[in-house]
Write a protein that binds this DNA or RNA. Structure first.
Length: 889
RNA sequence: GGGCGGGUAGCUCAGCGGGAGAGCACCGGCCUUACAAGCCGGGGGUCACAGGUUCAAAUCCUGUUCCGCCUACCA
């Protein structure tokens, strides 16, 4: 309670550090393995070990922390499972870059040494992002931290692979895949990023065998013609129908190409004739299966032309393109070149242009898994929030293609499959086999490929809890309560967790999936290093503090809309932290006289301001609770901001100064008790959003309490809702505001006290004003406050400014203070506004249909408005008239 | 090509059937001892455009247009 030492401005750095280590030390993040019946659990979307905290992480984890802290405060046994992802390609790339600095390639080390090197790297740098999450205030159960490559999780991966294989859901074969010539690995469809690029459409003449005719094909990749094995046209196409069944001759190469008819060929595009390159194009590959076409591979894994490429062999793909075009031109095969915007596929890791290539890969047959995952959402076992994403989810699940899970890299879970050198048998096993079960040969060669990183991530909700063992943890916390994630990994990750969870746990992995927005820069662009538009969350936290940052993210996180983050917004919420801090600085010294058990009395026996603030507080409690429970974090943040600043600080604290500095001990006590109660509740309400500052203040409010992390979160108490108090405070605040307005518009110095005269028809109102006169006097700086019934003579007031509140007429005598022109101007402006409003209300009320069809409450409301506006109009109107007549006399 | 989201105050965005809101910026006045990172007051918007439904539309429906994102085998 040493308010003297509280700095004037909130200084987050030391406080954040101190509280975080306190929480960890006291094990306050710990979840109990044992089931209590009231459980809440979230598994973190594991960030890449190579990662550094970016805005996406910050948003994602702030929301999780809000949910987790909220539930923990509400008495739930709450688990937030943390960990990191081994991020195959990304991590391998990082370490390879490091090696490159030493002039080495991974091949120079060999597989084993290289992997050792990656582990060393992980030990040194893998904890960075975890500590950054701590910095953000995340209340994860750190003792349980997992890594997708650790022993337990690797066992889960292996178990899943074997079972899927045994169930016939994993197969190996030669298929066309997306190949990254830079990373030397296959990529799944999802790992290819599509972008538009400017290129050309080359039109090439293919002569028809035994004729003078030729057919013109269109291509964006002329070099692939070396691998053509057919020409396809649409069977409906009158231009080409007669050619189907004939042969074309591949220019430069001389190979005979069958001309086939297939409906995939679009008649509108290009020339309507398609060159078919089964080994280097997805569509063509499928055509080749349908029409039983030969495969000619012309490119190697480095993107260079191989021996099938006649004299182009050895060239790089782009070099070859140039050479081919030149030769086609020279020999008269090139019909024309048209500029064309084409879709380019790039590797999501290294951004190199992906080549479709045929190679031997492992696949998961996903359709049955996807159908189950789809049904689970349809049946409501998992809710997707906001709902519109369910449609996207269905769409994808229905059009899903088999998942290529093998990657030709070294860092990852090695595929548990062996080929017997003796008989060729493929062995897939949980334990490393020593001999072939078929021919007993002991020369077994393990698959060199590793699994797609997302394969292990797909198991995350149960592998982290100890599966395949039936652990108590799984029993207690699976299915998890909620998954919080961005839509960018809906397919990569969420969909696959659904499939695997249902398959291996027999239940969905989470009850809710909350999909939040993306954080973009001010102009709406995705933040990326290459664009140079990233705002670094760590820097933001350094400058403005973690709480301010978290509150900003919460306040901006409206469902279904991306966040454009601007620094001024963060600054605004930093100011809010300061406001909270100073409210506490004000309040704390006044709470010293209270005993620990003092609480506000029942609302019936409290002074008006106390009844009012308690009523407002409980409305806020209700709003915050329901907003968090519906994932409307921005609404919760807004309610809290509004209540704290514009009700508690602007009005209640200001008003409390009167009673706190007064002589009435009982009144003083009531105010202090209420203030402590409200401030304390406010810290609890704010805690999930801004955990540090609230802990610090809460500890000063009640030093006997060690932490508010375990709650209790304030309960809504309907008996505190007091519409009458709200109405009466509304009147008083209206009077104060109108006097302040007159003062400001009339250019009267704030230091100058004013006399005020109020005419009210209502005895109850007069009593209210009379009883609370000190509030008006203090807050509006009034030195003489008279409240009278309108029957009494108003004449003594020769010149006064007029305001109307709730049918009360408020007069501020201005004689000798100010130029009447100013008042005439002010009133005219105000009257114009009211007239316009009154017009629209009158129009409604004179509309028979409105009266007949609108609901009663709406009509009643308009009637009330009408009388209020009429009173205002007449009050201000007569003020204006008087001002005018005084002026002219 | 298909799908989704969005166009509301100078900027960033809430609101999504009955009186146009917030933060920042702007204008005027205040160092009123919790806070100048503050206090008090103020100005500012045919809610993209056009139709329709309704007693009533920023809010619901249809169309147009512009922007963003996702997805796709038109080479």
């Amino acid at each position: 309670m040493d308010q003297g030492t509280l700095p004037k401005a909130y200084e987050p750095a030391e406080i954040e550090k101190r509280w975080y280590s306190f929480w960890e030390e006291k094990k306050l993040f710990h979840a109990d393995d044992k089931k209590t019946g009231k459980e809440y659990s979230i598994v973190i979307p594991p960030p890449n070990v190579t990662g550094s905290l970016h805005m996406g992480h910050a948003l994602n984890n702030t929301m999780q922390d809000i949910l987790v802290r909220y539930h923990r405060m509400n008495g739930y046994n709450t688990l937030w499972m943390p960990g990191t992802d081994h991020a195959g390609i990304a991590t391998q790339n990082v370490v390879e870059k490091q090696l490159a600095l030493e002039g080495l390639k991974r091949e120079d080390l060999g597989r084993e040494k290289f992997i050792e090197r990656v582990w060393t790297w992980k030990a040194m740098s893998g904890g960075v992002i975890i500590n950054q999450l701590r910095r953000l205030g995340c209340s994860c159960d750190w003792d349980r931290e997992r890594f997708t490559m650790d022993e337990g999780l690797s066992r889960a991966v292996r178990e899943v692979f074997v079972r899927l294989y045994e169930d016939g859901l994993i197969y190996k074969g030669d298929y066309i895949v997306n190949w990254c010539p830079r990373c030397h690995t296959a990529l799944s469809d999802l790992e290819v990023e599509h972008e538009e690029a400017s290129g050309n459409l080359w039109l090439i003449r293919y002569p028809i065998e035994d004729s003078d005719e030729y057919v013109v094909v269109a291509t964006t990749r002329p070099e692939t013609m070396l691998g053509d094995t057919a020409v396809a046209v649409n069977p409906e196409d009158d231009r080409y129908r007669h050619l189907i069944g004939k042969n074309a001759i591949l220019p430069l190469v001389g190979r005979k190409l069958r001309i086939i008819g297939d409906p995939v060929v679009s008649m509108e595009f290009g020339t309507g004739a398609l060159k078919v390159t089964p080994s280097h194009d997805m569509t063509d590959f499928e055509l080749s299966i349908r029409h039983n076409l030969e495969h000619v591979t012309i490119m190697d894994y480095n993107g260079r032309i191989n021996a099938n490429g006649i004299h182009f062999a050895g060239m790089d793909r782009y070099e070859c393109r140039k050479a081919i075009v030149a030769e086609l031109q020279e020999k008269g095969y090139l019909e024309s070149i048209q500029p064309y915007a084409l879709g380019l596929g790039r590797c999501y890791r290294c951004k190199d242009v992906v080549e479709p290539l045929i190679s031997q890969q492992w696949f998961v047959k996903v359709e049955p898994l996807a159908q189950a995952a789809l049904k689970a959402v349809q049946k409501g076992h998992t809710r997707i929030i906001p709902e519109n994403w369910t449609k996207v989810y269905y769409e994808w699940m229905n059009n899903i293609r088999d998942w290529c899970i093998s990657r030709q890299i070294w860092w990852g879970h090695r595929i548990p499959a062996w080929t017997c050198q003796g008989c060729g048998e493929i062995i897939v096993a949980r334990e490393d086999p020593t001999e072939c079960p078929k021919c007993k040969s002991s020369t077994l060669v393990q698959e060199t490929d590793v699994l797609d990183t997302w394969f292990s991530s797909a198991l995350w909700p149960f592998s982290t809890m100890g599966w395949p063992d039936r652990t108590e943890l799984l029993h207690t916390f699976y299915p998890t309560s909620c998954l919080v994630t961005g839509f960018d990994i809906l397919f990569f990750w969420v969909a696959r967790m659904m499939m695997m969870g249902i398959k291996f746990m027999g239940d969905v992995p989470f009850r809710d999936v909350y999909i939040h927005a993306l954080v973009r820069d001010e102009s709406g662009k995705k933040m990326s290093k290459s664009l140079g538009n990233v705002i670094d969350p760590l820097q933001v936290m350094d400058v403005y503090g973690t709480d301010a940052f978290r509150f900003t993210l919460s306040a901006l996180a409206a469902q279904g809309r991306d966040i454009r983050l601007s620094e001024s917004r963060i600054e605004g919420y930093r100011n809010f932290m300061n406001k909270v801090w100073n409210a506490a600085r004000f309040a704390l010294p006044h709470l010293e006289t209270l005993s620990p058990e003092d609480t506000p009395a029942d609302s019936g026996s409290l002074p008006l301001a106390e009844r009012w603030i308690l009523s407002r507080l409980h409305r806020t409690i209700q709003e915050v609770r329901s907003s968090i429970e519906t994932y409307c974090f921005n609404d919760a943040a807004q309610s809290l901001y509004q209540f704290t600043w514009h009700e508690f600080c602007d009005w209640y604290i200001e008003e409390s100064k009167i009673s706190l500095s007064g002589e009435n001990q009982e009144r003083k006590q009531a105010t202090a008790a209420t203030m402590r109660y409200v401030l304390d509740a406010l810290m609890m309400l704010l805690h999930p959003f801004i955990p540090f500052i609230t802990e610090e203040i809460a500890a000063k409010i009640r030093p006997e309490r060690t932490s508010i992390m375990r709650g209790p979160f304030p309960e809504f108490d309907p008996s505190r809702i007091d519409p009458e108090a709200e109405r009466m405070m509304g009147i008083l605040m209206g009077v104060v505001s109108s006097v302040r307005n007159i003062r400001s518009e009339m250019n009267i110095a704030p230091s100058r006290a004013l006399p005020v005269l109020v005419f009210s028809f209502s005895e109850q109102e007069r009593e209210l004003l009379d009883k609370n006169r000190s509030m008006v006097e203090t807050l509006a700086k009034v030195n003489e406050f008279r409240v009278i019934a309108p029957t009494q003579e108003m004449e003594p007031l020769r010149m006064a400014a007029t305001a109307v509140v709730n049918e009360m007429r408020i007069l501020v005598p201005l004689e000798g203070i100010v130029d009447p022109d100013a008042e005439i101007f002010r009133l005219s402006k105000e009257l114009a506004k009211i007239e316009k409003e009154l017009q629209s209300v009158s129009r409604k009320l004179s509309n028979e249909e409105f009266l007949a069809k609108a609901n009663a409450a709406a009509v009643q409301k308009q009637k009330e408005r009408h009388s209020e506006l009429t009173a205002k109009l007449s009050g201000l109107g007569s003020g204006l008239e008087k001002m005018r007549s005084l002026k002219s006399s």
